Structures are given as structure tokens and as C-alpha cells.
Simulated scan of single mutants.
Amino acid sequence: MMMDIFSKMDSLGNKNNAENWREQYVNALGTLMAEVLKNDTLLFSPLYIVATQLKEVTTVDPLVEPLVWQCVESVLEQFPTFEQQSDFPFLIEEEAVPLFLAAMTGSLSAIIELAHFYREEGLAQWAVKWYEIAAAQQQAEAIYWLGNFSYDGQYCPFDLAFVFTSYEYAAAANFPDGLNNLADMYLRGEYVVQNDTIAFELFHRAAKLGVAESMYTLGFLYENGRGVQQDMKKSNYWYHESAVNGDLFAINKMGHQAFEMNNGELAMTWYLQAAEKFDRHGEFNVGFCYESGIGVEVDIKLAKYWYKRAALQGDSEAKRRLNDL
């Protein structure tokens, strides 16, 4: 690995030579990756994205250098015969190259954004590697995400102790989602002794920082008097705040509440919000409204349309309704 060569040269007192070699190899990356990218099969491999990013590299900060050479090795290991991993070519998002180049400067914020990019593109194996670099620098958000990957057992070993300490670290840094997930562990008694009071305090902190899921859970805790005195007014407040902030469970719940109050139009408005976010429960509820004339005129064609959308996402009741119509 090239990083080993550079490190060895440094240790032998050949720092200038090592820097010269680094510069030469970085400069050669563009030519090398341009050649690699001529292989059409690469279009159907996620390495196409990595190779395209590497092609534009002109400088590499020591913080990210080991991973950059891992990226190069990963590409070259499959060259010239790349394994086709998709029936469709991978597309390069507009931000892909600028994000990579920003990360090459050693900027922790850029490294985190690059990790997010890989995660959102379904390239979790690369996301984890970049999160690990930021986590080694005690970056709370990166540590939080490594906890998530460990909890899922995806590209990180499943380890509840690691998950807990990751969320605990992120929560101590006041990272909103870290607070929420740590609260979940206390609420469920997962790895730690179950404690509603601590869970409530953590959810409340996260909700104040804008976490819609925490707002919903606060509504549940107030409704059921868990970790706090029962208070239906506060429960309804937090359910509504959660819905306004986009939580799909909360949006559907607000629709149910409107339905129970015989306000079909309001119920339909809430359900449609969830359905338009491709939530299968919202889609089913909109279908039911059209079938039953709740808040709208009966329209069996539209009812079938929404039931079909829910059914395609695995909703068994929607499938049954479709068969009955």
C-alpha cells in the first residue's frame, strides 16, 4: 500500500522524498482514474462513483490519506474486470466530486458530509470508513452514526455496549439524534436498566432541539403518565408539534384524532400529508377516506389508486380492500 511506503520513508528521515513521492502519486491519480473509467462495466459498479471522485484529486491531507489509498486500491483490485453490481448505471450526483475534494483538505465537516453522501447513496461500506475518520477526532455526529451502524450490525459488528456509549457520547455533546436514541434505550431498557424518568428528560432535551420523533414520544409519555405526570393537554401539544415537524406516525395520529371528532376534512388533510410522503399508513387512510366519503366525495377510482400504493408497500389490509372493491 502506498501509505506504508510513505510512512517508511518518513521514519527513515526521508520526509522530503516522501512528500515528493506523495505529490507525484497524487498528480498521477487523475491520469490513472481516467484510464480506469474507460471501462464501461465500471458504470454498473459503485466504484464508478469513487473512481470519478479520485480522478479530480490534486491534494490530500494526511488525516484522510490512508483512506484515499484504500479507495485507490479498491478500484485497482477489480481493474480491468469490474463486477457488475447493478442492472442500471450509477449516476454521479452534482455534489459528489466537490464533497470529496473538500474532504481531501481534512475538513471534519466536509468528511461528515461525504459520509452522509455515501450513506444516502446506499454505499454504507464507504460511509462507515469516513465516519470512522471523523469519529477518531471525537466528532459527535460521526460517533452517533457508527453507533447506528453497529446497532444494525451493518458494516460494524453488532455491539450494544458500543451502541450505548456512542449514543451517550453524542448526547453529552448535545447532538439531537444522539439524545433521542439514548432516550430510546432507557425507555426500552435496552442494555441499561429501564428508566422512564431518564428517558423523559432525554426526549425532552431532544424535542427542544427539533427532533420530531422525540416530540411524538413525549406525547406518548404525557398521555400514559410514564416518567412524568399524566397531562393530556401537553400530550396533544407534543403530538401536534411532532406532526407539524414531519413525523409520519404523528401525522396519521392527528388524522385519527380529527376523524374521532367527526372532522373528516381535517382528517383527510392530515392523511394526505402522510400519503404524499409515501407513508403506507397514510396512503391506506386516504384510500379509506375516498372509499367511505370521509372529508371528500366517494371516489372508488381514487380509493383504488391509494390502496394500490399502500399495497405495493406491503400493506395487507390495503390488499384486502382492493380485492373487495
Score class of each variant (00 low, 15 high):
Glu190His: 05
Arg188Cys: 10
Gly13Lys: 05
Ala274His: 09
Glu168Asp: 07
Arg205Val: 07
Leu272Gly: 05
Phe82Glu: 08
Ala115Glu: 00
Gly178Ser: 04
Tyr25Phe: 12
Ala170Ser: 14
Gln138Cys: 15
Leu54Ser: 07
Val72Trp: 02
Ala34Asn: 13
Asp40Val: 13
Ser11Arg: 06
Phe284Cys: 10
Thr81Met: 15
Val228Asn: 07
Ala274Trp: 12
Arg226Gly: 08
Tyr25Ala: 10
Tyr155Ile: 07
His240Cys: 15
Pro66Lys: 07
Gln138Thr: 15
Phe164Leu: 11
Asp87Met: 14
Asn14Phe: 10
Phe90Gly: 03
Phe6Ile: 14
Trp145Lys: 15
Leu160Arg: 00
Glu19Gln: 15
Ala34Tyr: 11
Gln194Trp: 07
Asp299Gly: 05
Met1Lys: 03
Ser316Pro: 12
Phe149Arg: 08
Phe117Val: 09
Leu248Pro: 09
Tyr191Pro: 15
Glu141Thr: 12
Asn181Asp: 07
Asn263His: 09
Tyr305Trp: 02
Ala199Cys: 01
Lys304Trp: 14
Asp4Tyr: 07
Asn27Met: 12
Glu95Lys: 13
Phe117Gly: 06
Gly246Arg: 12
Leu47Tyr: 08
Leu76Thr: 08
Glu56Val: 12
Asp196Glu: 03
Glu276Tyr: 00
Phe203Gly: 02
Phe6His: 09
Val128Ser: 03
Thr41Glu: 02
Phe175Trp: 07
Thr197Met: 13
Ala258Asp: 03
Asn285Asp: 02
Gly255Arg: 06
Gln230Phe: 09
Val75Phe: 01
Val36Trp: 02
Glu95His: 12
Gln24Asp: 13
Trp69Met: 08
Met9Tyr: 04
Ala212Pro: 06
Ile143Trp: 05
Met1Leu: 01
Leu218Phe: 05
Leu221Asp: 10
Tyr144Cys: 15
Leu266Gly: 11
Phe278Asp: 14
Asp152Lys: 14
Met232Thr: 14
Leu146Asp: 03
Leu42Asp: 08
Ile251Leu: 03
Glu317Asn: 14
Gln230Asp: 01
Lys233Asp: 15
Ala173Leu: 10
His116Cys: 09
Val211Arg: 01
Lys233Cys: 05
Tyr167Thr: 05
Ala102Gly: 02
Glu121Gly: 01
Ser150Val: 01
Gly189Asn: 01
Ile251Phe: 00
Trp126Gln: 15
Glu241Trp: 02
Phe44Thr: 07
Ala18Ile: 08
